[in-house]
Design a binder for these strands. Sequence first.
DNA 1: TTCCGACAGTGGGGTCGCAAT
DNA 2: ATTGCGACCCCACTATCGGAA
Length: 512
Amino acid sequence: MLLTRLAHVSQEVAATSARSRKIALLAELFRDAEADDVPIVIPYLAGRLPQGRLGIGWKVLSRPVEPAPEPTLTVREVDARLTALGKVSGPGSQAERARLVGELMGAATADEQRFLFGLITGEVRQGALDAVAVEGLAEATGVPATDVRRAVMLAGSLQTVAESLLTEGPASLDRFQLTVGRPVLPMLAHSASSVAEAVEKLGACAVEEKLDGIRVQVHRDGNVVRLYTRTLDDITDRLPELTSAALELRGERFILDGEVISFDADGRPRSFQETAGRVGSRVDVATAAETVPVSPVYFDALSVDGRDLLDLPFAERHAELAQLVPEPMRVRRTLVSGPEDIPAAEAFLAETLKRGHEGVVVKGLDAPYNAGRRGASWLKVKPVHTLDLVVLAAEWGHGRRTGKLSNLHLGARNPDGSFAMLGKTFKGMTDALLTWQTERLQELAVESDGHVVTVRPELVVEIAYDGLQKSTRYPAGVTLRFARVVRYREDKRAEEADSVETLLAAHPEVKA
DNA sequence: TTCCGACAGTGGGGTCGCAAT
DNA sequence: ATTGCGACCCCACTATCGGAA
């Protein structure tokens, strides 16, 4: 199959807003793909490369290359070239990769160049990724979408499922069973604004502490242990403590879901930055493990002794977990039977925060393990802080925000009346607000470099954030975590905005 | 008819590892 | 030694479609 056909279909998919039409377009293409093209065409149309990341980013791809006049590239040729490109390493590799990218782009037409750019940067912007591709695959093969979705979550990969479906037929789906050693997509949580709201939605539920670490899925089969992240990357070699801990448990075969986090000598959780740094360290693991030792803390069991627990209610899965894992290695929790227990749930949240944790996750006791989806039966509740900050500048948006000033630079007051930038945010804005702020900020503009528009520091905006973290990038030595706009405060003047001093005083645990 | 679940998009900061300077 | 880039952790929120209620 020619790449131009994919580029064309991707454009068509992007051009329609109807999901049903997107699915139909993908299904048509999947039906036409030859067996050898399937492992390439499917991920490409789901907006991903089968090779994963290539070490090529926006910078290299932005170098202009004269497009080819006629489309000649086949998807297999593109795939072969990208595979070769991904293997380049060692001194001189950046230049060599750039050369290979230039060659590939030179063989592509303008439309194909645009498609390849999106594919390699991971931003196809066609309004269809894995989930829509799953529907398209279902339509193309006549298999119910729920069956395909389940197979994908168990395989942890759309490509694998697509290959067997399109080459061997629907019966091959039976092959995708929950298997120890093969990671499954983890269940995710929605947000709720309060414990009361979460409990009212879920009824009988467990309220569990939410640890600010890294999600981990632990597989043990006899003496073999494997550890996977939320995106199913294998991190076994980086966390030897977790392997040892898993081997000390009584069970021989299991899959557990939990969080890996580092505690200090007093048993208080270290900051997310410290834990994440540890989990990210690959080179000198022994030293990293000495300075920042980590522990597993589990909250769910997906498989025990060869039994698939995914469809069991959470209450039963947790009973299995409690059989296998001693209490100190499980998240703290309290059970709640309904709205009458809300005060107890709130007290549990307060106590959890006091212990230095992030918040709680409220989980319905009847719900199955909804792998790969953001099930409505897990609701996280975290405290939200707010500040009144001053807009110092704004950046022009991309994609659907083209032509709108989107990303705001936020400042807090210094003692001398100037402003210290604390970070940026593009979150929390409605289309109407985007339109309004684009107008308003242009009135205040003093300078523009084509991307960043600097404004007179007069506009006050109320910002919600999850906490403060250390920063080497910003002048106050701190930055806001997950800042988002709540509303503009036109009733306030910049002199009334919050100061760096009050911010630091509100978070004594963070030392700038 | 209205409501709501699921999805995609829009990017944020930090840290690590590697290659280039 | 330092800088730049890419990968991958964490993440909030809005708009939209289309099925459920």
